[in-house]
């Protein structure tokens, strides 16, 4: 049986710092496509050096709709999508080909496990691994909704999606943050540039403190990730408090902050049973992740297919 043709797609916007590693790890694909959002650095030159077909697009607030347009233009039977700060391992060609050969007849899309790096360390505790990403799929079988942080849809239904066990699959390696300083800088940038509700009556500082409490409880996993996990939990808790203060500062008139009153109320808003449940399920904060985790566990109880 002939090998199916694979198209690699990478989106860039001033991505020169990380693009080299991403494209070098895709040197084996049959077609390499780089979709660039008006980079002013060397991204395009790097892409051309790696033999990629470069498509220029206008700067858009979200990458998702753009992804659909260009994955549809792929000439390959399968599409492999990487972000510009991600890369694949040295044995990815073998692993991807054997994955397609073994399971491609039964499934239309694969969710690949992802390693997320903070500095030099991969964070695996607190649900940070396998951190499945739907990135390898038959052409036309996956669509990204045009919204922030939404999961892509497998057009033939979730039954045709396989979450590749970490023990046998290629991983996506994601250099999230260069170091803790970069994490702090980015979080502060997001917090300062985010939009906050303008109605003073709806402001509740305790909700932000509850989120800080939640972040501390869920993200800290020192037995798996050591001190760095505690540092990350502290940054994310600090981020929640900063957001509360930035929100409060933007209101006119400023409502009472009620800081001292907020702490006990925040603890009550995140009961211990919920923390335990979420830690058990190995997922973080969003309900959609919880539902996926429950679904995956139920599916694991069913007879295996393919």
């Amino acid at each position: 049986m002939p090998k199916p043709k694979i198209t690699g797609v990478v989106h860039t916007r001033d991505s020169a710092a990380t693009l080299e590693a991403a494209l070098a790890s895709l040197a084996w694909v049959d077609e390499l496509m780089v979709v660039d959002m008006q980079s002013s650095d060397d991204s395009v030159a790097i892409a051309q050096r790696h033999g990629a077909v470069v498509h220029q697009v206008e700067i858009a607030p979200r990458i998702d709709g753009v992804r659909n347009r260009f994955t549809a233009q792929a000439s390959g039977d399968w599409v492999l999508v990487l972000d510009s700060d991600e890369y694949l391992s040295g044995d990815a060609p073998d692993l991807v080909q054997s994955l397609i050969a073994d399971k491609g007849g039964s499934y239309d899309a694969f969710a690949l496990p992802r390693y997320n790096y903070l500095g030099d360390q991969v964070m695996v505790g607190g649900g940070r691994h396998p951190d499945y990403q739907i990135r390898l799929f038959k052409k036309g079988m996956v669509l990204w909704p045009d919204a922030h942080h939404t999961l892509p849809l497998v057009t033939s239904g979730p039954g045709h999606l396989w979450e590749v066990p970490p023990s046998r699959g290629p991983h996506i390696h994601h250099r999230n943050y260069r170091d803790l300083r970069q994490l702090i800088t980015r979080q502060l940038d997001y917090a300062l540039t985010d939009l906050y509700p303008s109605d003073p009556a709806s402001f509740d500082f305790a909700a932000y403190l509850a989120r800080a409490h939640q972040q501390m409880a869920l993200r800290s996993d020192p037995e798996t990730d050591g001190d760095l996990s505690q540092a990350m939990a502290l940054v994310m808790a600090w981020d929640a408090v900063m957001r509360g203060l930035i929100h409060w500062d933007s209101l006119e008139p400023r409502p009472p902050l009620n800081m001292l009153d907020g702490f006990p109320r925040a603890a009550a808003q995140m009961p211990r049973w919920e923390i335990r449940l979420r830690r058990y399920l190995g997922r973080h904060l969003a309900l959609k992740h919880l539902l996926r985790a429950v679904r995956a566990r139920l599916r694991a109880l069913l007879p295996k297919r393919g």
């Binding site: 391992s89 073998d94 030099d120 360390q121 691994h129 390696h173």
Partner: peptide, 24 residues
């Protein structure tokens, strides 16, 4: 290796790193 070997520490030791996700 799970988790993977840390790339910067390997580089600091003067070595190149070839990461394999499957155990060969």
């Amino acid at each position: 290796s799970h988790p993977p070997l840390p790339p910067k520490r390997i580089a600091a030791a003067g070595a190149e790193l070839l990461r394999l996700d499957g155990h060969h």
